Computed example of a mutant assay.
Amino acid sequence: MVVIQGCVLNEADRFQFDLGCGSSTKPRADIAFHFNPRFRNPPSIVCNSLQQGSWGREEKLDQMPFRQGASFETIILIHEDVFKVAVNGAHILEYKHRIPLDRVDTFCISGKVKIHAIGYVPNSAIFSESGDLSIPYKGSILKGLRSGQHITIKGHISLFPHSFTINLRCSQSENVALHLNARMKSSMFIRNSFLSESWGPEELELPFFPFSAEKYFEIIILCQAHQFKIAVNGAHLLDYRHRVQDLSTINQLEVLGDLELQDIKLW
């Protein structure tokens, strides 16, 4: 994932971001993804690829999320088969790969734009689909989970909470690999999975209930080969054996309910 923060110049007519295959000028290096906002009449965004000195077929978006003189944040999410682009928290387009990803090693910016920051986030990260930590939260786990990874969720419980839910989902189906549901009034922390359109048996045993209204919490979910281990506020709380065996299909994190998120990390 590439994150670009900057400002479009007042007099801008165009600028571009290029994910390329080297920096050669003679011959010109191939460009896997050419992203080119144009402020002509009508404004549009043109995407293309350059191979062996020739441009391919243009793909054009007849919308313009950028504004002359305005700041922006652009996220280029890199999947195995497609680039996905979001501007200021909103998804705007997808562009299927025409050049193998393993050839891409260069990022170039040109045109009438001022850049404040560029970040390269590894594919193990969680990418917020809304661009922030607002509730309901939905994040994509790039490449899916694997054994040894941790998910850390930090936040505050609401003043008058009823419940909150954390789901680890499989986006290619309706399956929920891990469903955590904290019910404040009954002090229950329910665990379950939703597979093949039905819920399985609930797991309810708990040494203590770790959540309180208006209190800060930190949940760490450790993914191991055969189970999840869950700790809250530094203390181990429970184990949950995997009911989805292919961990790589677990690629979405969802958080709902009566809480405010402060931070989410995958490491």
Rank of each mutant, 00 (worst) to 15 (best):
C7K: 14
V8F: 00
A12C: 12
G20K: 01
G22H: 02
G22Q: 03
S23A: 02
S24C: 07
K26D: 15
R28A: 12
F33M: 11
C47N: 07
S49K: 00
G56W: 06
E58S: 14
L61V: 08
D62M: 11
M64G: 08
A70N: 10
E73N: 07
I76P: 11
I76A: 10
L77Q: 13
H79F: 12
D81T: 09
F83T: 03
G89I: 03
P100R: 09
D102E: 07
D102L: 01
D105R: 06
I109M: 10
G111T: 04
K112R: 10
I118V: 15
S130H: 07
I141Y: 04
K143D: 10
L145T: 09
S147K: 06
Q149E: 15
T152I: 10
I153G: 03
F164Q: 12
S171V: 01
Q172I: 07
H179G: 08
R183V: 04
M188Q: 15
I190K: 04
N192R: 02
W199G: 01
P210Y: 01
S212Y: 05
L222R: 14
Q224N: 12
A225C: 05
H226V: 08
I230G: 09
D239F: 05
H242Q: 14
R243P: 01
Q245Y: 03
D246S: 12
L247M: 15
L247W: 10
L256T: 03
G257Q: 09
G257H: 04
G257C: 07
